[in-house]
Design a protein around this nucleic acid. Structure first.
Lengths: 149, 149
DNA sequence: GCTTGTTAGTTACAAATACAACTATTACAG
DNA sequence: CTGTAATAGTTGTATTTGTAACTAACAAGC
């Protein structure tokens, strides 16, 4: 077998997408079933839960999410009383977002689920492997293949 | 800092999604720009390029892709003369898919790009790390967090 | 043969996403 | 001040995707 033969199972973007999809599926089901949330909404909720009061563009930068996604996610989360929006009176373009009591409760619940879920995923890996995996994923998240195109 | 504090950057599904998205972006741009393909179409093309003649449900199993996605991808690829469809006369429900000359050319081109692209991604990692990463991703792709729900 | 069930693939419609154009507000150059 | 550019966020519209229902062909029991 030629060693340079191309294999889909070796192609990193493909592998990453497969793993991401497989590993997100059941968790997705949980926040959808319990709180009717979409992936974008779950992400906004978690950012607010973790970092407290943020603006929409803060979230955009941290989560690398487009502002229109965030706008719509925030709209829905606000509609369902998971987040409060308060305008900054010093710069009226800006709006601060924070969790309501209900939003905080949902976050607390889902964070606990996420911890257990993560632990269950990790069971498939040995600890050293898991450490390397995380580090590698962080590196890959930072940027694409440096100036490929 | 509490060691059990939840961090989004440690949550595997999140990390995987970030890394997958970041690492797919530029490659996606290439098959989109050169051949007007979508992700689903690229995947079907690669499966046919790698494994030769397949049915739609073969591809579905290998790629873990829903049959409607495949149906639509095949439709578009056929429309643009990248794949041929030939009905199996022994079982007329089944259709065999294969690359046209043009499809083969596109596959050859994109496979070469993919090789270089993958190599560029790997440059961010050291070889041992890369090996562990691939193994871990394969494990995670196999299944979710074994009977979590 | 004729019902019932299964498999391969398609189509219809609702939901989600991407991209561009938009409003409102602030900044800043002259 | 005033005109021009920049920033925060929203909305409109075209694509894409997900889900379920569908057609067509085969299989199996009676």
């Amino acid at each position: 077998m030629k060693t340079d033969e191309f294999q889909l199972q070796q192609f990193l973007p493909y592998l990453l997408n497969q793993a991401a999809e497989a590993s997100s599926l059941e968790f997705q089901q949980i926040y959808k079933d319990r709180y009717g949330m979409l992936r974008t909404e779950w992400r906004v909720l978690f950012h607010l839960g973790l970092y407290g009061r943020l603006t929409a563009s803060d979230i955009g930068q941290r989560a690398r999410m487009h502002k229109t996604k965030i706008s719509r996610a925030v709209h829905r989360l606000n509609e369902r009383r998971f987040v409060d929006r308060t305008r900054n009176e010093d710069d009226r373009r800006v709006e601060y977002l924070s969790l309501t009591r209900q939003g905080q409760a949902a976050y607390d619940d889902l964070r606990a689920v996420a911890r257990r879920y993560d632990a269950a995923l990790m069971d498939a890996l040995d600890p050293a492997e898991a450490e390397v995996l995380r580090r590698a994923l962080l590196k890959l998240s930072e940027a694409g293949p440096g100036g490929f195109t």
